[in-house]
Amino acid sequence: MLIAEDVVKSFAAKDQAAPVLRGVSLSVSPGEFVCIVGRSGSGKSTLLNILSSLLTPDAGSVRYKGRDLAAMGEGERNKLRATDFSMVFQMHHLLPYLTARENVLAPFLSGLRPVSAARRRQALACLDRVGLADKADRLPGALSGGERQRVAIARALVTEPGIVFADEPTGSLDGDTGGQIMDILSRLNADGLTVLMVTHEPAYAAMASRVIEIRDGRIAAAH
């Protein structure tokens, strides 16, 4: 489904290229729950961003369903992110002036055509899947941190993506709330959703079907 081959990435720092990824290869199959773990600065978030098409690798390739992301035009990559790829960030990044349901519908607000009633029902169903159907009309300011992150997960589900990329989705939450988020992701994965998650919490990584450890820009272990 998603295959990365020999991915290399550097960032410029003080007129020098600082290598972050030094040739990473991995693959994700449909329905898998893959966790990328590693210490801060190991390159795990950079890898996730490259895999989700938000960053372009300096060398190597990333293929999704056989197509090289680097060979796609910007429009195709936008479309990919709007349909097949979904993101959940460490911070919920909800739009503060939209209700929970409207935030879930945000991926559909990029055009002049009004959002259909079917999409609205779909958004409510996604909120229901994360246990927030009764708070659909609340603004983010009226929700707790955990609830906001659950709305962000519902937003990631509404496009019925092929794969959800989650970058430390429990990073800003306390232990109990983080556990609830992980339970939701596990349940969604059990329903068939492919999840690729970055975390540095060993307990959460243990809930994944496969764990890839990144160290110094390389895969140090996979099990």
Binding site: L54, G75, N78, K79, A82, M87, A106, P107, S110
Partner: peptide, 16 residues
């Protein structure tokens, strides 16, 4: 800027 970045990550084009 955060919001714009988020919308770009959600698939919004530059034109949008």
């Amino acid at each position: 800027k955060n919001e714009i970045g988020l919308l770009r990550a959600l698939g919004y084009s530059k034109a949008s």
